[in-house]
């Protein structure tokens, strides 16, 4: 058969792996340098007081002493973040699609969404504590709301930019309006939605931790706030590192998933 050219990536797999390892190595080196600077300033030449920034060794000792108590806080924060990130974002996509699909839904919801959007979610924490108390519900509500806002706007904007030729093609193949939204608009905007999910991760941690500062029984935010009141800087640093690690792992997981989901895109 003529013209059966298939474009394949001809680069051998092991060469690509070596290339990747090289870049990972460079990134690890940066971390090592940062760690060395930390050690140098706190333990080496000792120009930073332990109260402001303790030495790596004393952070490590504190961690060893209390690590059994830390996990429950780390897990509480992680669960709150993941649950609200997923529910808020998925709801945002559904509502966003409904808004693009129906002028009626858009007319009802856009004043509410446009009105709430400029308000920093953190500003709502006191109100949410009055409504929900200091348990999980209020934190999940607020964090979901923030992720919802990101994805709803993301969905509406990118759905309006879907190449009309795809919609016309689907229509002429017999797809109903609802089917067009599910089988053309939604898959077409998935790459943009995934970047909304990425923004959502950072936002979810920020808001959950902030809400935990203001009142909680568990959570890294609560741990940090307690430690800060007793000037226990070691624990503050441990908490911060745990948030960073959790956010990093969640983002890596999202990256792996999105690489698979968007394998059809031209990269």
């Amino acid at each position: 058969m003529p013209d059966t050219r298939v474009i394949v990536n001809s680069e051998p797999a092991d060469a690509r792996l070596t290339e990747q390892l090289k870049w990972v190595g460079i990134s690890l080196f940066t971390l090592l340098v940062l760690f060395f600077v930390w050690w140098l300033l706190t333990a080496g030449i000792k120009i930073v007081k332990p109260l402001y920034f303790p030495a790596p060794s004393s952070v490590w000792e504190t961690f060893l002493q209390m690590h059994q108590r830390i996990w429950v806080h780390a897990l509480a924060t992680l669960i709150r973040v993941v649950v609200s990130w997923l529910t808020g974002s998925l709801l945002g996509i559904v509502v966003g699609l409904l808004m693009v699909r129906s002028r009626f839904v858009q007319a009802i919801l856009s004043p509410v969404i446009e009105g709430l959007r400029p308000i920093p979610p953190v500003a709502l924490i006191p109100l949410v504590i009055v409504w929900f108390g200091v348990g999980d519900n209020g934190k999940i509500f607020l964090t979901s709301l923030a992720c919802f806002m990101v994805l709803v706007v993301n969905t509406v904007v990118s759905a309006k930019n879907v190449n009309p030729v795809f919609v016309q093609a689907a229509r002429s193949l017999g797809a109903s309006e609802t089917k067009i939204y599910l089988t053309v608009v939604l898959p077409a905007i998935i790459p943009e939605l995934l970047s909304g999910f990425r923004i959502g991760i950072a936002l979810a941690f920020a808001i959950t931790v902030a809400a935990e500062f203001m009142g909680a029984e568990y959570g890294i935010g609560y741990l940090i706030m307690q430690a800060s009141r007793t000037l226990n800087t070691e624990v503050v640093i441990i908490g911060t590192l745990i948030i960073g690690l959790e956010a990093f792992l969640l983002e890596r997981l999202l990256q792996v998933c999105s690489d698979y989901i968007t394998r059809w895109t031209e990269k």
């Binding site: 030729v165 795809f166 016309q168 093609a169 229509r171 002429s172 193949l173 017999g174 053309v184 898959p187 077409a188 998935i190 059809w264 895109t265 031209e266």
Partner: peptide, 19 residues
């Protein structure tokens, strides 16, 4: 209106890239 008794092939690329 449009219907599946009439299929359209456009000048622009309308193959769904995600399928």
């Amino acid at each position: 209106g449009p219907g599946s008794d009439r299929a359209v092939v456009f000048q622009r690329d309308s193959v769904f890239p995600w399928l």
